[in-house]
Computed example of a mutant assay.
Amino acid sequence: MVWSVAQDDAAQQAARVLRNDHGRAASLLPADVRDSTTITATINGAGPLLLKLENLLPTGSFKVRGAMTTVQGIPGVLPAVQGEVFTASSGNHGLAVAYAAARNGLSATVVLPEDVSLAKYEVVRQIATRTIVYGADCLSAERHAASLAARNGATYISPYNHLGVLLGHATIAAEIVRDYPDVTDVFVSVGGGGLYSALAVVLQHLRPDIRLHACFPQNSAPLYWRKVPDALRAHAPTLASAVAGEIDPDSITIPLSLDRLTSAVTCTEAQIATAMKHLMADCGQRVEGAAALAVAGWQKLSQTQVMPRPLAVVCGGNITESRHAKALGQITTP
């Protein structure tokens, strides 16, 4: 676990801002971009499990919180975006930034990797000012978008390596603490670490007794691989594509996350698909693999640990019926 001094300094500064200003970020979010619905569920006969349904927010994922906070800004903390916005994403973040930009009268260019799903591409294309497909993976798309932004004197909004994005995501932690003071465990899906690090900093500040569990797809877990030196380090296709792929090695989310990572759960494709099935059958929620990953992590860990009041953050629901059905085909039976 090695990162630069500058990277660590930036992470520590971000942590201070997250602790001090997550409340202001929440107060400035539009009413429809906060206070997501939470239900109590029984999953495959087990539970109860609280499900915080970020998939029901505008654009279908939690990403709209970070995008809106970044575009709107926070007086004295984060300047509002002016002019054109560039971003890159496997889908959800790009959709959220395009939505936030349009809602604030700005233009947005979204760079998507070549393996983006057709459904997400079409939705982003309908909202973004311009859509570009570039690169074999998300990191290549991110670097291209950042380069285009610099060339055009515009603002680049990273999917995870941006203070505004983290502040928006931190509002989820504040809502959990406010609405469910008896929560003992929180499960969250992890990719670039934007959601996880924001929750980790704020939960540690407000409720250090809560156990935060980082859930990774076994097939693609770059943050986990940095934590565990002997872990398998070969990316493979995963149902949790929204949290898959390599991340920016200079991201502040690396020290922010790894300094606070105390519980990591890796899940197989069959476990993710099974969680997708149960969320649909038991809760009526058709969600993407990255969202089901948090529930899969809970299902796996609950077999060996006692958790009096667990909650899973259901991060997104942007998946077509046909792709959902195909995903369920990966469930294996003994």
Rank of each mutant, 00 (worst) to 15 (best):
S4W: 10
A10M: 10
A11V: 08
R16M: 05
G23D: 05
A25F: 03
A26W: 14
D32P: 08
G45S: 13
G45W: 06
G47L: 13
L49S: 09
K52L: 14
E54T: 06
L57S: 12
P58N: 11
G60W: 01
F62H: 13
F62L: 12
K63Q: 09
V64D: 11
R65I: 12
R65Y: 14
G66C: 12
M68W: 07
V71Y: 03
V77F: 01
Q82S: 09
E84G: 01
F86T: 01
T87P: 03
A88F: 01
A88V: 04
L95W: 02
Y99C: 14
A100M: 07
A100T: 14
R103C: 14
N104V: 08
A108S: 11
T109P: 08
V111H: 01
V111Q: 02
Y121Q: 04
E122F: 05
V124M: 00
I127G: 01
T129N: 00
T131N: 00
I132P: 11
G135C: 02
G135H: 03
D137T: 04
S140G: 04
E142Y: 05
H144W: 04
A145E: 08
A145H: 08
L148W: 07
N152G: 07
S158P: 12
N161W: 10
L166V: 08
H169W: 11
I172L: 13
A174H: 12
I176P: 02
V177A: 08
V177Y: 10
T184L: 12
D185G: 01
D185L: 10
V188N: 09
G191M: 05
L195I: 15
A198M: 10
Q204R: 15
Q204D: 15
H205M: 11
R207S: 14
I210M: 04
R211Y: 09
H213C: 07
F216V: 00
F216A: 00
P217G: 01
N219L: 05
N219T: 04
L223N: 10
L223G: 09
W225G: 08
R226S: 05
R226W: 02
V228D: 13
V228R: 13
S241D: 15
S241P: 04
S241C: 13
G245N: 11
E246V: 07
I247V: 15
D248T: 08
P249D: 10
D250V: 07
I252H: 07
I254G: 04
L256F: 03
R260I: 06
C267W: 12
Q271P: 06
I272K: 02
A273V: 00
T274S: 12
K277I: 00
K277H: 10
A281W: 05
D282H: 04
D282S: 10
C283H: 04
G284C: 05
V287D: 09
E288Y: 06
A290I: 00
A290H: 07
A291W: 03
G297K: 11
W298S: 00
R309V: 15
P310R: 14
L311M: 15
C315I: 05
G316N: 04
S322F: 06
H324V: 04
T332A: 15
